[in-house]
Amino acid sequence: MRNVAWIGGLAFKDHMPEFGWRPLHVPLRPGVPLCWEEIRAAAGEEPEALVYVDRSAALPMVGVESFPCPTCFFCIDSHIHAWYPAWAQAFDACAVSLKDHIPAFASRLAPDRLVWLPPFAKDTDRPPESPPEPEWDLLFVGTVDPETTPGRVRFLDELGRLFPGLAVMRGDYRGLFPKAKLVLNVAERGDLNYRVPEALACGACLLTPAIANGQEELFRDGEHLFTYPQGDAAAVAALARRLLAEPERRARVAAAGRAEVEAHHRMRHRARTMATLLDSLAAAGDASRRLARAEEIRATHLRRILLHWAEASENPEARGRYLAAARGLPCPPPTPGLF
């Protein structure tokens, strides 16, 4: 079994051994980008591949274009970070969560090195063995903050006036979703978010916006879930009223949605896709071709990003590493005793 340095989010890490890859977890350094020497030391052995799972943070590694093994970036928040497509060119492949964003990553990476890896349900996302009695007609679970989610606040306020049966809560969605007749998802940025497979895996009858990014390829309206026009509170209220009068239809669609997740959208399914991609990278020698073009990649795609983070960082060690990487200089030595 080959090993893979696993950096950033855990995602489906624990399922990788099922497909021939043993993950070596490497923790990020808060506020300071990792160098290859630190990654190798933290892994405890020479990595045969490397995967970085998006943590929606500052540039987490420097010198990626010169890493000696096959590399892959699992990009989740491309709807938030405009610099991701350029940074992805330092890797041998990129798995992108939002399908419509894939063309933006195609500057250097070939089509077969850009893979759609849509949201998935966690292993713990399951309905309770004994479903509780419903407490709410329509439930939204998530952050509602005027500063960070103003559009969501306005939408839910309007919906609450139109549909008094709306409940808005925070907490463990696994314990809350089974207590609702209908579950509401909001995607104000138009992103296919993880709440879709999570809710379906928990057995919810889900109402979610009709958006792009491949949602209609994964789940069909009226069969696995129900969709409403983005931002249309009146449409949600009308749909909820209709469905509350059709309990058998709600149950049928919820069961079909859960079955679809079990068949295609669990952690193990995404691990299989990632393992297949790593197998291909290892067999085709992509890392050698990238290494031969490392200086060009740095100059064309990375220097501007590195200089931005050098200016934005308040950490002197991080600034030094970003500047060194932008100039093509060796990374400053790892901090003694870090790992």
Rank of each mutant, 00 (worst) to 15 (best):
residue 79 H to G: 13
residue 67 F to M: 03
residue 26 V to S: 05
residue 19 F to D: 08
residue 48 E to A: 13
residue 46 E to D: 15
residue 27 P to A: 13
residue 45 E to K: 05
residue 56 S to Y: 00
residue 88 A to V: 02
residue 31 G to E: 05
residue 24 L to F: 00
residue 81 H to W: 10
residue 66 S to P: 00
residue 70 P to M: 11
residue 50 L to E: 03
residue 60 P to Q: 14
residue 36 W to T: 07
residue 88 A to W: 09
residue 98 L to H: 08
residue 94 C to Y: 12
residue 60 P to W: 05
residue 22 R to W: 10
residue 61 M to G: 04
residue 59 L to V: 12
residue 32 V to S: 09
residue 83 W to S: 04
residue 86 A to C: 06
residue 78 S to Y: 05
residue 59 L to N: 12
residue 27 P to E: 13
residue 34 L to F: 03
residue 39 I to K: 09
residue 90 A to G: 15
residue 100 D to L: 14
residue 78 S to I: 02
residue 75 C to Y: 01
residue 62 V to W: 01
residue 47 P to T: 08
residue 65 E to I: 13
residue 48 E to C: 12
residue 90 A to M: 07
residue 38 E to D: 14
residue 92 D to S: 09
residue 34 L to I: 01
residue 36 W to G: 11
residue 19 F to V: 12
residue 37 E to F: 14
residue 23 P to C: 06
residue 13 K to H: 07
residue 52 Y to H: 05
residue 53 V to W: 01
residue 20 G to T: 01
residue 53 V to T: 14
residue 61 M to R: 03
residue 71 T to C: 09
residue 65 E to P: 10
residue 22 R to Q: 14
residue 21 W to E: 06
residue 18 E to C: 07
residue 31 G to W: 00
residue 23 P to H: 04
residue 25 H to A: 15
residue 26 V to C: 05
residue 56 S to P: 04
residue 85 P to H: 08
residue 74 F to T: 10
residue 37 E to A: 15
residue 97 S to I: 14
residue 97 S to A: 15
residue 92 D to L: 02
residue 45 E to H: 13
residue 79 H to P: 08
residue 43 A to G: 10
residue 51 V to Q: 04
residue 21 W to I: 07
residue 75 C to H: 03
residue 70 P to L: 14
residue 73 F to Q: 04
residue 30 P to G: 08
residue 23 P to T: 12
residue 79 H to A: 11
residue 53 V to P: 03
residue 90 A to W: 09
residue 26 V to H: 08
residue 63 G to A: 09
residue 75 C to G: 06
residue 14 D to A: 15
residue 22 R to H: 07
residue 93 A to M: 11
residue 68 P to Y: 06
residue 39 I to F: 07
residue 29 R to D: 02
residue 85 P to T: 12
residue 43 A to K: 01
residue 24 L to N: 13
residue 84 Y to P: 11
residue 69 C to S: 06
residue 78 S to M: 01
residue 96 V to I: 15
residue 73 F to S: 08
residue 67 F to L: 09
residue 92 D to V: 12
residue 81 H to V: 00
residue 60 P to I: 12
residue 99 K to R: 15
residue 40 R to A: 14
residue 89 Q to F: 05
residue 69 C to T: 04
residue 53 V to I: 15
residue 29 R to K: 10
residue 81 H to C: 02
